[in-house]
Design a protein around this nucleic acid. Sequence first.
DNA 1: GCAGAATTGACAGGTCCCTGTCAATCGCCT
DNA 2: AGGCGATTGACAGGGACCTGTCAATTCTGC
Lengths: 150, 150
Amino acid sequence: MNSPDGCSTFLVRHAWLSLRGVVAEALVAHELSVAQFASLLMLNDTPGMSVADVARKVSTARQSANEMLAGLERAGLVERRPNPNDRRSQRIYLTDAGRVRLDEALPTVRAVEAKLSEGFSAEEIAVVAAWLTRMTQAEQSTTTEEISTC
Amino acid sequence: MNSPDGCSTFLVRHAWLSLRGVVAEALVAHELSVAQFASLLMLNDTPGMSVADVARKVSTARQSANEMLAGLERAGLVERRPNPNDRRSQRIYLTDAGRVRLDEALPTVRAVEAKLSEGFSAEEIAVVAAWLTRMTQAEQSTTTEEISTC
DNA sequence: GCAGAATTGACAGGTCCCTGTCAATCGCCT
DNA sequence: AGGCGATTGACAGGGACCTGTCAATTCTGC
């Protein structure tokens, strides 16, 4: 796919690293990490998620999500409330401050991303999105699928 | 770009995580980590690089590359030779075993990647590659470009 | 109902990678 | 020639994330 590497995987990796860097840079002014921003985004879209839900949504470990949400909670951007239907879990909601913070940060991030995609048509972007989504469906066999061969 | 997140950055991240998982799974049979495989690939393409060169090529920190190369060296897949032109740096070369290992692993990885891209035309793949490459050109301002505004 | 499997949030421990730093060396410039 | 910034490889220390585990709770099959 690419001449020097030859593997699209590392092209995707490089793109992710660059994008993360740019987004992180855009977020320092809002005192948010990339992961925190992602969580705020998810929580705004789906309020009342549990820690485990957030972890699944941002595809990270439960504990990582827990630690990061603790940071957001310390900053007063999210709050945990007991879940009346499930005494194990807690529902997590954006506070007003969290919503304000997200409303401030989101346009910045969107602007950065839009600027980077300049020159690509909507159809091309759609193709890219389709390809990336296809990659995400690369479900790795959790239980190792080559057991019998040995 | 994507309905739930709304940010292409996280779609790229998700794609990278999935790809890394799949590639890592394909590489366990060859006893290679994804980073090690990338380094072998780069060193095969450009033999005699220094540790710093490898770090830049795989876009990681010098020390991370150093540790990983130490692992490859312990496994006998690469070797360090003094650089006659520069007594600070060392030239790193693939050993015969390293070349064999790479020749074994590369087809596996390529097959996995090709299988994932099934159904996309060459033109579409080219668009994806162009977009990803464009993202990698998102040079983050190392020296903060918004100094004057405050 | 109730035993067993699954899930949730939290904890410990470890890994990977990064930043900051250092002496040694190289390149440039005068 | 010689000073000075930049680079290289190595070291210490820390941050972010993960796996493995636990009690508590919920869900499921009988």
